[in-house]
């Protein structure tokens, strides 16, 4: 069906896919808040939220409702436009990253091949890098516009932290790219489907990437931008109501996306061992593949929470020393070794 030379099926398919991915990341982020509270409680020998609905499963709805109905306060001396722009950017950027993650293999519906990836761009990883580093603008603008010294301090911290940790993250990824020879996430997954998972070849690279992912998501032990006891909550100190909710929500979406990314880059994405020997139909294969990726992602999210409730926060100079003097040299060494091995292998 082509009308005015526009492929309408293509448009509908993409719109459905985009809404699906968006709803998925929002729902996962919503239930991450519930999961976070449950994991925190269990680790501290408590029960966690269990009053709203069975096992407290309605708790995220109650929290969201509370945030929506709270009073909206914009400080008098803040920059009103930027104050609203901050959480909007944080949320927008968090939702944009999911576009290049391949959620499953292609499925066939009524003779049409549908790729379960919003955009299979050939620079997928670069896109994610570009978009994720935009996320710090939300924090920076929000913190600066609040006209509060604690918020400003927190946003300066966030900016320098994300710049510092983007470098080792990028270096760790370069080693991975040498191995795979492509920037497209879909191809990286297909390679892992044929061979071994990348974490086998790049254990150090994965470790560096993992640590940097924690720092990029502002999660403990690198949650200095929102250090409650030093900065009264950090960059979202002056925020209330759903604008605060957007900041917190963006953090959970980022956590979900970076978990999905780590699963895709290093743990085979939607590929699982022996998936081609099961003899399933193409659609069933895509479905099980999606489930595999989802389970991997959930395990990573659990890992994020587990670490949060185990490790205390770094001091700021320790954070910088770890970033610049440990992770960057390690990532460089990893890159050089990978490069040398690749060179030897191809000659």
């Amino acid at each position: 069906m082509t009308l005015l030379s526009i492929d309408w099926f293509f448009l509908i398919e993409k719109i459905l896919l985009i809404s699906g991915v968006l709803v998925l990341s929002l729902v996962v982020a919503m239930y991450s808040t519930w999961g976070e509270r449950k994991v925190a409680a269990w680790i501290q020998d408590r029960l966690g939220p269990n009053r709203a609905g069975p096992m407290g499963l309605l708790q995220p709805l109650a929290d969201g409702g509370k945030l929506f109905f709270k009073e909206e306060i914009i400080p008098t001396n803040s920059n009103r436009f930027l104050f609203i722009l901050g959480p909007s950017i944080a949320m927008l950027v968090a939702c944009m990253t999911s576009a290049v993650i391949p959620w499953a293999d292609t499925i066939t519906i009524a003779g049409r091949q549908i790729s379960l990836q919003v955009a299979d761009v050939n620079i997928g990883i670069l896109f994610i890098f570009g978009v994720v580093s935009m996320g710090v603008y939300g924090i920076m603008i929000g913190g600066w516009a609040s006209n509060n010294k604690f918020s400003l301090l927190a946003s300066v911290r966030a900016a320098s932290q994300i710049i510092s940790y983007e470098l080792p993250m990028g270096l760790a990824l370069i080693a991975l790219l040498m191995l795979t020879g492509t920037l497209s996430l879909k191809e990286i997954v297909e390679q892992q489907r044929a061979g071994l998972w990348n974490v086998v070849y790049q254990p150090l690279g994965f470790l560096i990437f993992l640590i940097c992912a924690f720092a990029e998501c502002n999660r403990t032990p690198f949650d200095l931008p929102e250090a409650e006891n030093e900065l009264n909550g950090g960059y979202h100190l002056e925020y209330s109501s759903m604008k605060l909710g957007f900041f917190l929500f963006a953090e959970y979406i980022n956590m979900f996306i970076s978990s999905a990314l780590m699963a895709t880059l290093y743990f085979g994405g939607y590929a699982y061992p022996g998936m081609d020997k099961l003899g399933l139909s193409e659609n069933m294969l895509a479905l099980t593949g999606f489930l595999a990726l989802f389970i991997k992602t959930l395990l990573f999210i659990f890992f994020f929470m587990w670490v949060r409730w185990t490790i205390p926060r770094f001091r700021y100079d320790q954070l910088m020393r770890l970033g610049w003097r440990v992770l960057i040299p390690l990532a460089l060494a990893n890159m050089l070794i990978t490069g040398a091995v690749e060179l030897l292998r191809h000659h």
């Binding site: 269990w42 680790i43 501290q44 408590r46 587990w306």
Partner: peptide
């Protein structure tokens, strides 16, 4: 912490 995840909870409902 993983061990505590599965331990008996101290909470009395």
């Amino acid at each position: 912490t993983l061990k505590h995840l599965f331990q008996r909870k101290a909470t009395v409902s």
